[in-house]
């Protein structure tokens, strides 16, 4: 009994205590990774060999224009927001301006079979939505925006 109590004893050094829990979690993660490889590995390997996985990949359909367009637009949107905002600091103007452009571009990218009515809708919504959000949140509720 005493030896067990001795075994369970731990001394935590406060200076190093930030590493204790992360290392435990990392060991558990490693263990689980191994277990997954042992359990699911052979199955995956077999699928790879008989081509099931490969045909699965081949069947993967991507709308390249919309996917990469969406990612690129979002990236540009996030990058531009703060610099534009410095035009008139702490007023949320960066959010407002970039959102109008982004909203318009993203809607245009996503829409199919564009017609006049849809053009109108997109134009209207891409101006009104950010404007509404900006008025309500940046002004009425005074949330800080870029």
């Amino acid at each position: 009994m005493d030896t067990l109590a001795e075994l369970l004893k731990v001394q935590i050094d406060f200076e190093q205590s930030h590493l204790l829990f992360p290392s435990i979690v990392e060991w558990v993660l490693g263990g689980l990774m191994l277990a997954i490889i042992v359990v699911h590995g052979p199955e995956l390997l077999a699928q790879w060999r008989n081509g099931a996985l490969r045909s699965c990949l081949a069947k993967w359909q991507v709308d390249k224009k919309r996917l990469f367009g969406c990612l690129a637009l979002t990236l540009a949107y996030f990058i531009a927001m703060e610099p534009v905002g410095t035009l008139y600091p702490n007023s949320g103007i960066g959010f407002l301006l970039t959102s109008i452009v982004y909203g318009f571009a993203l809607s245009r990218l996503f829409v199919h079979d564009i017609n006049r009515r849809k053009w109108m809708l997109i134009a209207l919504s891409s101006v009104l939505t950010p404007l509404f959000v900006w008025v309500v949140f940046a002004h009425l509720f005074r949330i800080t925006l870029p």
Binding site: P89, N90, S91, H139, L140
Partner: peptide, 25 residues
């Protein structure tokens, strides 16, 4: 008071160069 707090009703920036921004964070 809520409306007054929102800058919607705040007077536009005076013509003279102000030492402080209208929106001080």
């Amino acid at each position: 008071s809520t409306l007054a707090a929102s800058s919607l009703l705040a007077t536009p920036a005076a013509a003279e160069q102000k030492a402080l921004a209208d929106n001080l964070r």
